[in-house]
Amino acid sequence: MKISFLTPEYPHPNCTHSAGIGTSIYNLSKALLQQGQKVRILVYGQNQDEIFEDNAVIVQKIKNTKLKGFSPWLNSKDKMKEKIIEGFTNQRLTWRGSEMV
């Protein structure tokens, strides 16, 4: 099974912020790996886009995009969902109207 977590923090030196929820996700990820699951952590609100591996957990940093008037759209739930699906399928997704294809 493939499991993703979407969080604003993760306890790793490459990430910009970490606190309680990040540590909880880290510990849960380790337990899931021991059960043979594949785990990906998507950390939003970061200073750059980056993907790295942390003890068999794939960590994907998502840059906080700031563009006057467009930031809410660029950092929306749909864009985060797109990043999750892209991460597991390794495919670039496109939008057709309100549908992701």
Rank of each mutant, 00 (worst) to 15 (best):
Q91Y: 08
R92I: 15
S76M: 01
W95E: 08
N90S: 14
N90C: 09
E82S: 05
L93P: 00
L67M: 12
M80E: 09
K79Q: 15
D78S: 15
G97T: 05
D78T: 10
Q91F: 10
P72L: 05
I85E: 09
F88L: 08
I85A: 05
P72F: 07
L93V: 02
S71H: 06
K68E: 15
N64K: 09
S76I: 03
F88W: 15
K68I: 14
K66G: 04
R92K: 15
T94V: 12
D78K: 14
I84E: 01
G87R: 01
M80L: 15
E82K: 11
E86A: 08
I84S: 01
Q91C: 09
G97F: 00
F70T: 07
N75D: 07
G97Y: 00
I84M: 05
L93M: 06
E86W: 03
W73G: 07
L93Y: 03
I84Y: 00
N75W: 00
K66P: 01
T94K: 05
I85M: 11
N90V: 06
S71I: 08
I85F: 07
L74K: 12
W73S: 12
W73F: 15
K83Q: 13
L93F: 03
T65D: 07
K79W: 01
L93A: 00
I85D: 07
L74F: 06
E82Q: 15
L67R: 14
E82G: 01
K81P: 00
G97K: 04
T94D: 04
N90T: 10
R96V: 07
R92Q: 14
Q91M: 10
L93H: 02
I84A: 01
